[in-house]
């Protein structure tokens, strides 16, 4: 059994004049040690889903199993104890503003009845792990966003959780700070074997640290699996849109002018994997066939530790020539996929 199993989970919010089906029949399995990303647009239901994982939100239907135990079958007391194993960090850090850093980190231990002195000692150790020893007496208002999130991470680790839920934990941070926080999360994952669930609307976060990803839209999971596979073979429209949007983000290259795009008869996506991108395939191909192709988008980046790249080409109208180009690319061991619609 997976560490976290979500079965046929639905959540409906009912207010006076409206019903919102925030989650519709969600099924999810997250294994021990995974870094599992959940991505989707605003309002997709990501926060609601993650809040169901520790029962801060009670599902309308369905079950959540954590470490082989059904959260829905627990008494209030058991649930409070279970939450010790499932820590959480947030977009806005949610630190106690009137308590200093070391007391914030001690807080979950005090809740569990650990003595104040002991809790402080442990808190100092944890501050060492997140690199903030020297800030132990500062108050949250005196820290930067990245530092606050580090305190929140130290606080989350205090109860020695087996699972860490992150709801948009980097969304309020600049790209550089985001990178350092993601690095820290990855370290925690490898060092302590803590399973991490990351909610985000940024594809770059998924790309940088996640092993698995689930793509959410309008309360449903459209696609889920290994990040590598979903990036190279997105099956659903939602996944393709997210990946394309990501290419539009950092490091993207647009080479063709919009009016040129209309003339293309066929567009293909080439996926580079491992070391294939070091060979100048496109240049060689153009030299060989003697026909130019339009590079509509090009982007290579680091996905889960493997150099990955994609390129979208607009091929000439001539069928035979198209075939020739595709054959050439396939012969180089690259995967091709036809792209439809506007890119």
């Amino acid at each position: 059994m997976a560490q976290i199993e979500v079965r046929h989970l639905s959540k409906t919010f009912t207010s006076k004049d409206a019903q919102v089906n925030a989650l519709k029949d969600i099924n999810l399995e997250i294994e021990q040690g995974d870094i599992y990303g959940i991505i989707g647009m605003s309002g997709a239901g990501k926060s609601t889903l993650v809040r169901c994982l520790n029962y801060l939100e009670k599902p309308t239907h369905g079950e959540v199993w954590v470490d082989g135990r059904d959260l829905g079958g627990m008494t209030e007391k058991e649930l409070l104890r279970q939450r010790k194993d499932i820590a959480m960090i947030f977009q806005h850090f949610n630190l106690l503003m009137q308590k200093n850093v070391v007391d914030n980190v001690s807080f979950p231990l005090l809740i569990q009845g650990v003595k104040k002195k002991e809790a402080r000692k442990k808190a100092r150790e944890l501050l060492g792990i997140v690199g903030l020893e020297e800030k132990e007496l500062a108050y949250p208002a005196q820290l930067s966003g990245g530092q606050k999130q580090r305190v929140a991470i130290a606080r989350a680790l205090a109860s020695e959780p087996r699972i860490l839920l992150c709801d948009e934990a980097t969304s309020a941070l600049d790209p550089q700070t985001t990178a350092s926080i993601l690095e820290l999360l990855k370290d925690i994952n490898t060092q302590f074997g803590i399973t991490i669930v990351i909610i985000t609307h940024q594809m770059s976060v998924i790309r940088k640290i996640c092993s698995h990803v689930a793509i959410m839209s309008q309360g449903e999971i459209k696609e889920s699996g290994l990040v590598n596979e979903i990036f190279s073979h997105p099956k659903t429209r939602e996944a393709r849109e997210l990946i394309l949007k990501d290419i539009d983000g950092e490091g993207a290259v647009h080479l063709a002018k919009p009016q040129d795009r209309l003339m293309e008869a066929k567009k293909i996506r080439i996926v580079f994997s491992e070391n294939s991108s070091f060979e100048p395939v496109i240049a060689n191909m153009v030299l060989k066939t003697g026909r130019p192709v339009n590079i509509l988008k090009a982007d290579t980046k680091n996905v889960g530790g493997i150099a990955k790249g994609e390129m979208i080409l607009g091929l000439p109208e001539d069928r035979k020539l198209q075939q020739e180009i595709e054959d050439y690319i396939r012969a180089r061991g690259l995967e091709i996929e036809e792209v439809t619609g506007d890119v």
Binding site: L56, R83, M88, L96
Partner: peptide
């Protein structure tokens, strides 16, 4: 701040 209360709840605070 509701977020701080939520954080405490997530830690299993009564």
């Amino acid at each position: 701040d509701a977020g701080v209360i939520e954080a405490a709840r997530s830690m299993g605070a009564s």
